[in-house]
Nucleic acid binder design. Structure first.
Length: 577
DNA sequence: GCCGTTTTCGGCCCGACTGTTTTCAGTCG
């Protein structure tokens, strides 16, 4: 069973307990455990069976046992009991923003509302207002939220690329205003998360109200909230909520830190602070005993006051980064400027939009020393395949290009070969042997089942001429689940054979994800950050690949293509034949 | 239910906002 499914069961049980009126910390424990399970890179099912799930912060013996019961019986006994007491559809009702478990329980007890349909009827008939403490506004809110639910409202998550495009434009407009002083993008976008729900911007201003007006009058704004000296809120035409907060310069660091999150990171930070007799909020850090407040104009001061080294936004997961910062043992993170070449790109020979020369020019423009051209292989289909004789001609073209290429730059002759359903790859060994670089990826038959698919990828890994596995898990963010594979077994095989793993920088892939990247790097697998560029402009997607590497805590030593070609080339499996 | 440079018991982040209410509980990020 997948982590996401297990997490849903644990979260549902938490909500059922909450409806039942359980101790709130117990409820919080279930919700946190669900989040930990959802974010865990390895298989929770396997860990629970081995009894090691309790090694994760937030999972204890009790929840591990509940996971085991879920795996064995397909249901958690405690959840079964509670569902006998409350209709299962009651959990759905708590998903309406503004309605928590307490309110939902009262609606059930007093009005018999147990589903979204009954909730809607009660709101329409104005029956909700008879419950003490609830009024007409609640009915209005319920109907509005039910409407959004049907329309797939503004609460849906977006790809980071979409958020950065809109957020970047708004931040630029705010910075351009003479009313502004400092303006920064905060929130999950600043942490370079895979997907984001909304945009948070924090600022200081010479004229706060005027700056808030800049946001409200921006052409991207559709719905507008009120502008005040504290900030403003809009919803863009494409449905993204944007929140601007403005504070005095002396507490800008506190505000930026707070609204960068993550929530889990902030909670962990405040727990640490509490033990030091300090209380942290977005306005400052208070010494509880003396009442003295420290306001920080930058984040370095915030972390410094708590005895911590500055923590890069990408590392703020709420995990081990705080202990590392306390011990001054934070990893040095890879930067985009340290990347010396890209190892996954396409041209018009397969499904790319630009020619060999155009891709090469773009790579040189980025200051790269090398670019691997890895068009799709012979069985790719969709009319985008490259037959063996075409690939041979391509190798010659690349040799010709390199013969007159500017000093310090070379194209690499490569391929992104399909991993065939039986684990074989396209092209014979002789042709593969003539290439500089071979990426192997799964593009078809990805519903073979875990065992078969894992074995299939491992046989590609064991191929002596396969240098790297492309987009290992095949997921498409917000669209397609990863293939059903045993990633840990794949990582083991990659480590044994010296096969590299890619972090694909397409913003809809980010594959492998940060948790796997960390495990792989720790197992000694060399990681390459690539773009899978299908056009010259998408070479810029290296920023997303690097973002995932940074979130994994990887430094230049672990990212192989931070090396120049001279020292990268010998790391390839083929170089060791 | 989880967890431990105060703790194996007794705690568990902080503040803003909302809608309702005359001082606050619930919800959210």
């Amino acid at each position: 069973m997948r982590n996401a499914e297990i997490a849903n069961h644990i979260a549902e049980l938490g909500t059922l307990y909450e409806i039942d009126g359980a101790n709130r910390f117990r409820v919080i424990a279930y919700k946190e455990a669900a989040q930990v399970i959802r974010d865990a890179p390895g298989s929770i099912a396997e860990m629970a069976k081995a009894g090691t799930a309790t090694s994760l912060q937030g999972i204890g013996e009790t929840i591990q046992e509940k996971v085991l019961a879920l795996l064995e019986e397909g249901e958690i006994p405690a959840a079964r009991k509670l569902k006998a007491k409350y209709p299962a559809t009651l959990v759905e009702v708590t998903k309406i923003p503004g309605l928590g478990a307490k309110t939902v329980r009262r609606l059930y007890d007093e009005l018999g509302i147990s589903s979204l349909e009954e909730l809607e009827a009660a709101a329409v008939e104005q029956r909700i207002r008879v419950v003490r403490g609830l009024g007409a506004k609640v009915e209005e809110n319920v109907l509005a939220e039910l409407g959004k639910l049907g329309a797939g409202g503004p609460k849906e998550r977006r790809l980071l690329s979409e958020i950065l495009e809109v957020g970047g434009e708004l931040v630029a407009a705010l910075r351009d205003s003479p009313a502004s002083d400092r303006v920064e993008l905060a929130g999950s976008a600043r942490r370079r998360a895979e997907t984001c729900k909304d945009i948070d911007i924090v600022a200081t201003a010479a004229d706060a109200k005027a700056l808030a007006e800049v946001l409200l009058r921006h052409p991207l704004a559709d719905e507008r909230g009120a502008a005040g000296s504290g900030g403003a809120r809009i919803v863009t035409h494409n449905g993204i909520s944007v929140d601007l907060r403005i504070v005095p310069p002396e507490e800008f660091g506190n505000l930026l830190q707070h609204f960068t999150g993550s929530k889990e990171h902030n909670v962990a930070l405040r727990e640490r602070a509490q033990k030091m007799g300090l209380s942290v909020s977005e306005h400052g850090i208070t010494d509880v005993e003396s009442g003295e407040v420290t306001r920080c104009d930058d984040e370095i001061a915030v972390y410094g006051r708590l005895g911590l080294a500055y923590i890069e936004p990408e590392l703020r997961h709420g995990g081990r980064e705080i202990a590392q910062a306390a011990a001054k043992e934070l990893p040095e993170l890879i930067e985009v400027g340290q990347i010396r070449g890209d190892l996954h790109s396409h041209t018009t020979l397969s499904d790319g939009r630009n020619s060999l020369e155009e891709m090469a020019a773009a790579a040189r423009g980025r200051g790269y020393g090398y670019l691997a051209i890895t068009d799709h292989s012979a069985t790719h289909g969709f009319g985008n395949d490259v037959q063996p004789d075409q690939l041979r001609r391509r190798i010659e073209e690349i040799a010709t290009y390199n013969a007159s290429a500017p000093k310090g730059f070379r194209l690499l002759a490569g391929t992104e070969t399909n991993i065939l359903p039986d684990g074989g790859v396209d092209y014979g060994d002789e042709l593969l042997g003539e290439l500089d670089w071979v990426v192997a990826s799964v593009h078809t038959s990805f519903r073979q089942g875990e065992k078969k698919l894992t074995d299939r990828i491992i046989s590609a890994i064991e191929h002596p001429l396969v240098d790297c596995i492309g987009h290992l898990t095949g997921r498409l963010l917000l669209k397609r689940e990863p293939y059903d594979i045993d990633v840990e077994r794949v990582i083991e095989a990659a480590a044994e054979t010296g096969t590299m793993l890619e972090i694909n920088g397409s913003p809809r892939r980010r594959d492998i994800k940060e948790g796997y990247a960390r495990i792989a790097a720790e197992a000694g697998v060399r990681i390459v950050v690539t773009t899978d560029a299908h056009g010259a402009e998408t070479l810029a997607n290296i920023a997303y690949s690097v973002a995932t590497a940074r979130r994994a805590g990887l430094g230049p030593d672990q990212v192989a293509n931070s090396r120049p070609w001279r020292t990268f080339a010998p790391l390839r499996k083929r170089a060791k034949q």
